[in-house]
Design a protein around this nucleic acid. Structure first.
Lengths: 376, 376
DNA sequence: CTCGGCTCTGAATCGCTAC
DNA sequence: GGTAGCGATTCAGAGCCGA
């Protein structure tokens, strides 16, 4: 949807394309020509506010994000920083340009509110659901298994770029949703320094940027990343035939990114089309049967052969003959067996008939299947 | 984790429990006794940018010439509303109380920022991932397939309630994540009015509230919902043996909710009880193991992996490799770890087998239970 | 070669209680 | 109220090693 109007808005002064600029992103953005960029992808500091050390149950220490660039003395300081870089970014965008910002609950609400205050127009918030997040080691909170991205255009009137069909195709023919299941960046993709340690604490997976750039830019567009880090945005932009501008303050990150980019080759278009996303697996915990009201807490289940019974509890556990635990554990205990498939072992009664609870799981799975495959 | 301190904070003035109060939620909350509520679940108007009116305590109307200005003025009104109801809610919470707020990208960033500004402390943002969302018919954006909930305690110091084991149990033994897959409310659960139309535009599924209440309240807790609507919060609270207070301005919704609640029955107490954490079990000093002759002074203990050993002393301390102290201290010292659970770390030998000393603690605990139940 | 077991690690606002 | 000490707590995936 990029228009000729946007193209004319480009200043006569040449843009420093496909380079990494060294320095403070606000100053550098303010030095670049107004209205010259199609898309901004920004991964600003999250302002994590970590306190002491954290250890895993095996006593190993978690290598936390304690870098100086993530330290802000209070919300006011962080808010000013956010206000300034978002304003500089907005000035740089073409009238039909758009921005993506990624963050966690520590900062994303402040970023989102400021985006709205400045007149950006939010199209979607998008959830990156991590298939392999770090667990909560102390059992004090829910596993923090996602990050939030906000996708917004420069203004309400912007004719933003949205490649609906491309995303649908990436999603096996089904309309792309606002929650994306993508693994965290590790293995061979994760960049290491000379000592073999991770080169950057928060390197983003290329799969994430792939989806962002395929969905909301066109070949030849200019993509700017003001917090370039190790250059995932630049790498994916280069593969996909987009131009990038990176800004990064830390020399160590710039060096890693330069080296990375030098090895990247642009895909041919066929290769791009064949990349498929990883899909979520339909594991169904028994608790969902309770939450959805398919069985009520207090209801009784009966074993195969009707020799044992147990009562369902609100947390999805069973209690029967003084044994408490999962449907599998209680089944195994009552049978004196080392293991038991609770789904086929337990039955509930409806109109005098005994029905295996696995039927309920199948119903839930069917709903999930319909949802994942039905063309809208 | 609710403490007696919270219980004492309850005012002498009786709370209007298990009722729906009619009127403006801010006024009503301000009329209730301070520090009297364990949990608040709030589903405030998402509003914004939609033409329909929200509370507009009104500003003089400016001719909408400048979009940006107009937008700001709308946000300002919404922000004031948010500030006021969140402040009233915070006053009502016990020191260890907590709040859940649900919203979409239209309002959640403003709500989240204001929560932080007021001193609430965010534990998680939780994604309700809808398994059956409404598709985006025009193909101009991603399918908006989720809503965002924020879970926050009254302050950073709050000892908030988190039933880790119950949620883990609901998820079949795996730690609960911050993304919850739950279908939208439809079918038989969706309340209809006399004409057969949906009674409320945004009725939340009971499954969502089930998980919230099982995870972050205890039986007997007071749960307040300032935007009660058709009363999903009250319905699930009643089923789970929690007390509720509902506030709702619209008479039509109150009527539907009253009728709904009158049909709800509480689950039996045994079903409501959930798996308890080990922390809740009585503490057993290691010295008791010696006193009871389960281990003899001079006997040797062996570490996990058999790399270290230590000798038991008569006072219940260990000595190994010149280190003396508790089972925990010696374990930590020998491993060079910051801490160590001596109960699971140390093993004793019986008939050639290595047995963790935790077995002995479990025996003592079992005896204590018998003691407690026997008439004195 | 495969397979199984062991190790390592990832944007983390990650105690409680008794003295 | 401050502090010392007990003792609870993890999931997925990649890589490596030995059988």
């Amino acid at each position: 949807m990029t228009t000729t109007k946007d193209k004319r808005a480009v200043s006569a002064r040449p843009l420093p394309l496909n380079q990494i600029l060294a320095g403070d992103c606000i100053e550098i953005m303010n030095s670049l020509p107004e209205g010259s960029v199609d898309l901004i992808f920004a991964d600003p500091p999250y302002n994590l506010q970590l306190k002491g050390d954290l250890h895993r149950p095996d006593n190993s220490k978690v290598d936390a994000v304690d870098d100086h660039w993530d330290q802000f003395s209070n919300f006011a300081v962080y808010d000013k920083f956010t206000r300034d870089w978002l304003a500089a970014a907005r000035r740089l965008l073409k009238p039909n340009g758009a921005i993506w910002v990624i963050g966690s609950y520590h900062n994303i609400f402040r970023v989102g509110a400021e985006l709205q205050n400045q007149g950006y127009w939010i199209m979607n918030d998008v959830i990156w659901r991590k298939s392999n997040p770090m667990p909560n080691f102390r059992g004090k909170r829910l596993t923090n298994a996602h990050e939030t991205m906000i996708w917004a255009s420069k203004s309400e009137d912007s004719k933003y770029t949205f490649n609906y069909e491309a995303l649908k195709s990436l999603n096996e023919g089904v309309q792309m949703r606002s929650d994306w299941v993508i693994p965290i960046c590790n293995g061979g993709e994760r960049l290491k320094d000379a000592q073999g340690d991770k080169a950057h604490p928060t390197q983003k997976p290329e799969a994430l940027l792939h989806r962002v750039l395929v969905g909301t830019t066109n070949p030849g567009d200019v993509v700017l990343d003001p917090f370039f880090g190790t250059g995932t945005t630049g790498a994916v932009a280069k593969m996909l035939g987009r131009d990038f501008i990176g800004i990064e303050r830390e020399e160590a990150y710039r060096e890693v990114a330069e080296k990375r980019l030098s090895r990247i080759r642009k895909f041919d278009s066929e290769a791009i089309a064949t990349i498929k996303p990883k899909r979520a697996e339909p594991r169904v915990p028994f608790g969902q049967v309770i939450e959805r009201g398919m069985l009520r807490p207090g209801e009784e289940l009966y074993s195969i052969g009707n020799r044992h019974k147990a009562k369902v509890r609100a947390d999805g556990s069973l209690i029967g003959n003084d044994v408490k635990g999962s449907i599998h554990q209680v089944g195994a205990a009552l049978e004196g067996a080392p293991s038991c498939n609770g789904w086929t072992y337990w039955h509930y009664r409806r109109e005098g008939k005994m029905i295996p609870i696995d039927i309920l799981r199948q119903q839930i799975r069917a709903e999930m299947e319909v949802d994942e495959t039905r063309p809208h």
